[in-house]
Every structure is written in structure tokens, then in C-alpha cells.
Design a protein around this nucleic acid. Structure first.
Length: 559
RNA sequence: GGCGAGGUAGCUCAGUUGGUUAGAGCACAGGCUUCAUAAGCCUGGGGUCGCGGGUUCAAGUCCCGCCCUCGCUACCA
């Protein structure tokens, strides 16, 4: 049986997560997973924080915290944001916390080495004699040899954008203590991407079907793949396995090497917790698995080239990615979200004013699927008032309050004589609009959200045409039948809403007097004339309430 | 510097492999309705598709040049 193994890019445990991340990799994945589950598919959704790397050690030291303490803080912070937005993983671990991660990463490294896909090389690097450590990447600062300006980092000059070779920096200095570093030889391992490309990955990439924006991105990727160093001289990280390292001391796997392996080790952790420690193989080493990576576009090279190369290179029948529905970037009205530049929203304050699920729906409606898009508060308010409050929400209250007032809050009776006419009226338009899930499975989430609203609109038209408020005076049976039909349709909408608005869907479910969790219902698909009705008439309804209060226009931003 | 994306109605955006009068939502105007969250329904106005060339019977859609905006550049999706 087909299995869907869904991952979202591991967020870096170095700061709060923002809507840009949410829109890029997490919210679409969550909607996808919820939809597949209701469709009856076997799905596993894996994520966790990426907790190694130089940026974390620098910032933890600045904050005066232990590395482990530092990443746990951000792990919890990030997890809370996901909880607030209703993003639910099967496992949300972390690369420094997961018990299986070190062993799994080391196995990858050892196997790649044994299979001839690693190369060991010795080069000169900068070493700080005072701190007694090699100055990897951003641990070294200096004057740019290209533009002559100070402030260049060991990897890149922020002034002119030149990709820096730290050995050539003018007046290099240790970022921690300012000491002038010296050159010292060090040995590292390199992932032989050219060899992996020629062995398999090149053909695989060429022949794989990618989402259009992904295909455009990776087109030139293969021509000039370099070998990449996958080890670093530091202590925070997964140690290079001793059987390979030999005499080399204090070397860890480079963070981008061990991070994606987290997808595998977190799966192992989950299965171990479930008491079936070998079950991870059913997901990672089975031809029945469809591996789907949700990422932002900056992660395309990793997930389309590097990680597949690693999965192939260990030669243990790992699955290759099935789809990589990468999104473009989601900006904050006018510029990008950036924690470091203060272009960000304080989510705690934000959620005091703006409903979480409305926010979730707005982000889904504006996802950067094909091009960069932006988050705009005015548009969020407009979407809420027009589509959610005016269309979907008002449909629900106008029908249910009418029934509460005039039919003792019970589902009105359908008279057989009216069934065909009302089925036709309701289902013809709805059939043309179609099933939101069909768009979800094509990763067209904006279109899916739009389809949900368009379907609600069908019922507003139905009510306008049948006019039950007038009809009940002239033909009560017809009026009851029309209202019965509207109840059926809202019953349908409640299930369609689940992936997009999970809590609102549940609230609606209860207003309809339905027991249990709506998320446990099977996906209803497009209503079919012969089978779509399920109310007998006479069922007690719950208390009708407005699901989507109107919002006031936001106060003009002081930006 | 390298790479990439985008410039389509007032606003936010759709526009498959080039093919009849360029679409949606919001906003705006007029009409209808009163069950409902000043909500709903119907109709309408509004665009020489960034600029200049080219290919073609036919281009928003392909090619060349230019202008503008933005992003990435491997440790912020």
C-alpha cells in the first residue's frame, strides 16, 4: 500500500519562526497531511529543529547559555508557534535531542565513505591560538579583499556580496577574541557530488518530474557541482565516527550534512516510542513510500541534489524524493521577513488581535506557490470580512439561526416531492466548482482555499433563490425541504473545512449536532445526488454562533 | 559579481502546450432582497497585459535589447 512520508524543512533553532517560514514549508504540508488522512491515506509527518552549526554556537555564547539549553529554548518557542497555527506533526524532535540522531548520521557518513563517495583532504585554515580552535566560517571577520571594506565574514562580504575565501582576508581576526589567527593544516572529508551525479543522481534529476518553479531552479544545478566539505573543526555537532576519523580530533559533521538525516532519525525515534523500532524501514526503505519534502526555494539544492545523493550513496535502498513542492518567498508587506532586521511580527501580540485560524486561512490564500507573495494586514482583514464572515460564516448563521427560530432548532424535514429539484439546484453549480482536495493533492493550496469559498457561495445563491423566509408562508413543506438541503450542504462544508480551518470546522460540526471529531470523518469529495444526504430530519442542532466575527480595518502601520 | 523571480484592471493576483470580444476576488456604480455577522443575490463600468524591436495567419504567452522591483548566493522557509 502506498505510504506518504511528508517532511517540512527543519527550522533552525536560532530564533523565532515567522510567517515566511510558516508559508514556505509548514502550513502547506499540514493541509496536505490533513487532507490525505481524510482521504484514507497512510501518512507520516516528520519534522524537528536543526540544532547544530556555527550560527547557534556563536549566538548561544553571546547569550551566555549552554548550547543545549539555547537550542531547547528555541525549540520550545518554535513548537509553540506551530501549535498556535494548528500545525500538527507526528513527531517534532531536534537534531541534538533525538537519541537516534548521532548513530544514524554516523552510519550515513561511514557508508558513504565505504562506498567511495567521500574524499579526505588536507588544507590550510585559520586557527585562533588564543581560543585554540579553527575559525570556521563566521568565526572569522576581516577586511574584504574585493571591495576593501571592513566587516567581511569568513564566508561572505555583506558589503559587496563576494564569496570570501577566509585565507585571503585582509587583516583577519577571530570573532570571539579579536586575535589575529594563524594558518594551520587541517583534514576534512568531502562529499563527492560529481561522482554521485555521474553514478545516478544526474539522470534521476533529469528524468524526474518537478514542480515548474523547482525545475527552473535546478536546471543549471548539475553542470557545475563541486565536492562539498561535510566536516568542521568544532565540538558542537555529531562527531565524525571514530572508525573513519582515525587520529583526527574534534571534528563534527557539517550541519547541512546531519540536518536532513534528522528526517530519518526522527522517524526512528517515533517508531521506537511506538514500540516498533524497525518500522521506520517501512517508510524510508520501501518502494511503496512517496517521500514529499515541503521546503522554501532556498532549500531546493539540498533536497533535490544533496540529500538525494546521500540517500542514494549509502546504498541501502532508501527512497528518493517523490515530490519537492518548494514555495517561493513570503514577504512582509514591502520587504522580507527578517529577524535580524526587525522586520517581523510579534506573534504573541498578533494573535491577541487576530484569530489564529483566520490567519492560517489568509496565509493559505496568499501562499507564494509560483512567485514571491506578501503578507498584508489590510488584505487579511478584507479576506476575513468578505470571504469568511460575509460568505462562509454568514451562510452558516443565516441558515442555522433561521432554523433555531422557526423550526425549534431541529433539522427540517425533506419532502420527497422537492428532493430532485433541490438536489439539482444545489449540486449543479457545486459540481462545476469541484473538490478542494483535488487542488491540495496538486499542491495548489491557494486554489483549494478559493474553491472552498466558492462552494460556500453556491449555498448563498441557493438560499437567495429559494427564499425560505417567504416560502414558509406559502408552502411550508418546500421551505423545510430547502432548509434541509442547506443543512446537508453545510454538513458537507464542515468536512471540507477541516484541512484549512480545523477548529472552526469542529465548532461547526458541533453546531450541526454531530458527535465526535469531524477530522475523523472520511473526506466527502464532491456531493453525489444519490448519496449525499444523511439527515433524517428532526435531529437536534447545536447552538448557532458566528464563527468568523468581522474585523475592523487595521490602524495604519507606523512603518 | 553569479543565479533566479516578477512587472496584467484602483488594490491583491489567475492566465495550461501562442488561437475566438484578456479573467477572479476586493474596491466602485446601479438594481433586488430582508433569513443573516450593515451580511446575501443580480447587473455594470474599468486594462494599447513595463518599454522597443522581431518570429508568426495569430503573442500577455516564443526570441533579442532596454528600464524598474525583489529575492537567493549554500548556516533565516
Amino acid at each position: 500500500m502506498t505510504r506518504y512520508l511528508v517532511t517540512s524543512a527543519l527550522p533552525y533553532a536560532n530564533g523565532p519562526i515567522h510567517f515566511g517560514h510558516v508559508a514556505g514549508a509548514y502550513l502547506p504540508a499540514d493541509v496536505y497531511v490533513r487532507t490525505l488522512r481524510m482521504l484514507g491515506e497512510d501518512v507520516l509527518y516528520v519534522c524537528g529543529t536543526d540544532e547544530h552549526g556555527v550560527a547557534i554556537t556563536i549566538n548561544a555564547e553571546k547569550a551566555g547559555q549552554e548550547y543545549g539549553e539555547y537550542v531547547k529554548h528555541w525549540h520550545a518557542d518554535i513548537k509553540q508557534t506551530f501549535d498556535e497555527l494548528g500545525i500538527e506533526f507526528d513527531v517534532f524532535s531536534g537534531t541534538s535531542q533525538c537519541a537516534q540522531h548521532v548513530e544514524t548520521s554516523q552510519e550515513f557518513f561511514t557508508q558513504l565513505d565505504a562506498n567511495g563517495f567521500l574524499e579526505k583532504r588536507t588544507t590550510e585554515q585559520l586557527f585562533c591560538p588564543k581560543d585554540e580552535m579553527f575559525l570556521a566560517d563566521r568565526y572569522v571577520v576581516g577586511t574584504c579583499y574585493s571591495c576593501g571594506k571592513p566587516g567581511a565574514r569568513g564566508d561572505e562580504c555583506p558589503s559587496c556580496g563576494t564569496w570570501i575565501d577566509p585565507l585571503q582576508l585582509t587583516e583577519p581576526a577571530c570573532k570571539l577574541c579579536g586575535t589575529t589567527p594563524e594558518r594551520k593544516a587541517t583534514t576534512h572529508w568531502y562529499l563527492d557530488l560529481p561522482k554521485l551525479r555521474d553514478a545516478k543522481i544526474g539522470d534521476w534529476i533529469q528524468n524526474h518530474e518537478w514542480k515548474p518553479n523547482v525545475a527552473a531552479f535546478i536546471q543549471n544545478l548539475l553542470d557545475d557541482v563541486p565536492q562539498r566539505a561535510i566536516t568542521r573543526d568544532m565540538r558542537w555537532g555529531v562527531p565524525v565516527p571514530s572508525e573513519v576519523s582515525g587520529d583526527e580530533q574534534d571534528k563534527v559533521l557539517y550541519v547541512w550534512f546531519d540536518a536532513p538525516i534528522g528526517y530519518v532519525s526522527f522517524t526512528k525515534e517515533l517508531m521506537a516510542a511506538r514500540g516498533t523500532p524497525d518500522a521506520w524501514k517501512d517508510w524510508w526503505q520501501s518502494p511503496d513510500t512517496r517521500l514529499v519534502h515541503f521546503i522554501g526555494k532556498d532549500n531546493i539544492p539540498f533536497h533535490c541534489l544533496v540529500f538525494p545523493s546521500m540517500l542514494y550513496g549509502v546504498q541501502q535502498d532508501y527512497v528518493m524524493p517523490w515530490q519537492v513542492p518548494a514555495n517561493e518567498f513570503y514577504n512582509l508587506a514591502g520587504g522580507k521577513f527578517s529577524t535580524s532586521e526587525g522586520r517581523t511580527l510579534d506573534l504573541d501580540t498578533f494573535f491577541e488581535t487576530y484569530d489564529r485560524e483566520v490567519t492560517r486561512f489568509y496565509i493559505l490564500s496568499t501562499l507564494p506557490e509560483t512567485a514571491d507573495a506578501e503578507f498584508n494586514l489590510d488584505n487579511l482583514v478584507t479576506l476575513n470580512n468578505a470571504a469568511l464572515a460575509g460568505n462562509l460564516g454568514n451562510l452558516i448563521t443565516r441558515v442555522l439561526k433561521f432554523i433555531a427560530k422557526n423550526n425549534d432548532n431541529q433539522v427540517p424535514q425533506l419532502t420527497e416531492a422537492h428532493r430532485e429539484q433541490y438536489d439539482t439546484m444545489m449540486l449543479t453549480d457545486c459540481g462545476e466548482i469541484g473538490d478542494p482536495a483535488e487542488w491540495v493533492t496538486q499542491y495548489r493550496f491557494r486554489k483549494a482555499a478559493e474553491t472552498l469559498i466558492a462552494n460556500a457561495s453556491v449555498a448563498n445563491v441557493f438560499m437567495q433563490r429559494t427564499e425560505p423566509w417567504a416560502l414558509r408562508k406559502t408552502d411550508p413543506e418546500a421551505a423545510a425541504s430547502a432548509l434541509n438541503t442547506l443543512c446537508e450542504y453545510i454538513h458537507w462544508l464542515a468536512r471540507w473545512m477541516v484541512p484549512f480551518l480545523p477548529n472552526k470546522a469542529q465548532a461547526l460540526w458541533e453546531m450541526l449536532g454531530r458527535p465526535g471529531k469531524v477530522a475523523d470523518q472520511p473526506w466527502p469529495g464532491v456531493p453525489q445526488r444519490a448519496t449525499w444526504r444523511s439527515f433524517e430530519g428532526g435531529e437536534a442542532l447545536g447552538e448557532p454562533a458566528a464563527l468568523f466575527p468581522r474585523m475592523d480595518a487595521p490602524v495604519a502601520a507606523d512603518a
